[in-house]
Simulated scan of single mutants.
Amino acid sequence: MSDTRGQQTTAGPGGKKPEERPGGILMGRPFGVPVYVTPSWFVIAALITWLFGGQLADVLPELGGTRYLVSLSFAVAFYASVLVHELAHTLVALRYKLGVRRIQLQFFGGVSEIEKEAETPAREFWLAFVGPLLSLVLGGLFYLALLAVEPATVPGVLLAGLMVSNLVVAAFNLLPGMPLDGGRMLRAVVWGLTGRPMAGTVAAAWAGRALALVVLFGLPMVSAARSGPDRSGTDSLIDAVLSAVLAVIIWNGASGSLRNARLREALPALRLSELARRAVEVPADTPLGEALRRAREAQAGAMVIVDSSGEPTGLVKEASVNAVPEHRRPWVAVGALARQLEPGLRLDLGLDGEDLLTALRRTPASEYLVLRPDGTAYGVLALVDLEKRLSAAVAGRPA
């Protein structure tokens, strides 16, 4: 439940490199933002239908089997409320020009994938708070509607269920721990007090991890205490499983938020001049063994193929070199192990941070030629070196 560039907010009972593939069944594009329903939603919809249908048997026994159709309509209406919660986040994000990639309705609520970080603590706070605020408003509206109908009727039961569920959504999302909205609000407060976004993220992430443990052990205990000695083994098992799944989601979301924050903090420090390897230039017909000898003498970590005029034409792939057995290297020409130097494989030395990652995403490869402002070769960027730098940053280790 994380996004490497921006943030994701959650709604419902449990309410990343970003994925570009579709996130489920496309339901529409309100305000230009695609809304997807993931396959996991059908699992929770079936569970809600079963559990709510069982409760309806006690409240409205005359419904018979029709109660499950009523329960299904409640599940759909509840997730429509979750969608309103997420659209509130979306509208504020669009107002702040942060961009929203998509909204997903899934097993434990909804997720809004916001592309950029809020620029100030105040905007971060409002962006997070508006979702629970809308859920509170919906709960109030369903309460007012409930006053106009008989409680022991289908409309009364549905309105009561929607009122309670929206209040639960609001209350749960206000808990101060990542990845919940309350965690984002806590992050904004700590950010505002310290002036450091990272300090806010660390505080909210650890609060989220603590919250996950409370959910894991606390919810089953509370449910057991409320139900008393008549509680069935099936009910206990369901509560334990749901608590465990919810705790894992919260823990992973909190940990993911911390990793993503470290990644964002590390991005501005990415410099091609520091990442690029020294390269040796060799003709395409040079035997691999000879090319490796020249590279060792020059203390170079990469090889560039050049033509007769000395113009770079290709990059030797490190993975291909490592795949050639030692005894074959004198007989294999480096040109057979190289990738043709396309325009997207030429990087300006001045690229750094987000601009560097954008250029790499445009033309995926394992090696890139780094050029000085005058067009001469500076070195070669090996993608594995960049990945090691980012992995160290995400793990909180020195590069």
Rank of each mutant, 00 (worst) to 15 (best):
E117C: 04
V35H: 05
V137G: 07
F172S: 11
Y36A: 07
D181H: 07
A207E: 03
L26S: 14
D181A: 04
M198S: 10
W41R: 11
W206Y: 15
S232L: 08
W191S: 05
T194S: 15
L270C: 08
E354C: 00
A336I: 00
G161L: 03
P34Y: 06
I44T: 13
E117N: 09
M185Q: 12
F78N: 15
L315W: 03
S71A: 15
A212F: 03
T4F: 10
E20Q: 12
D235E: 15
M178G: 01
A80C: 14
G131C: 11
A261G: 15
P121N: 03
K17T: 11
S135A: 15
D235K: 05
V241A: 14
G109E: 13
L94W: 01
D374I: 01
A392T: 02
L390T: 10
R329G: 00
W331R: 11
P364S: 13
A393G: 09
A152L: 11
A118G: 06
D355S: 11
G195N: 08
R271F: 02
L390S: 07
L213Q: 11
G301H: 04
M178E: 11
R397P: 01
V214P: 11
V190W: 02
G131R: 11
Q8N: 15
T38H: 15
L47C: 04
V241M: 10
F142E: 07
L357Y: 06
S112G: 04
A359G: 02
S40V: 04
A395H: 09
Y96T: 01
L386K: 12
R361H: 10
M1L: 09
R397I: 01
F142R: 03
L175Y: 12
V190T: 03
V324K: 01
V84N: 06
R259A: 12
A204P: 02
L159V: 09
P197H: 04
L147S: 13
G53K: 09
L267W: 09
R339T: 09
V304W: 00
S309Q: 13
L270N: 05
V304S: 01
D285H: 00
L292A: 00
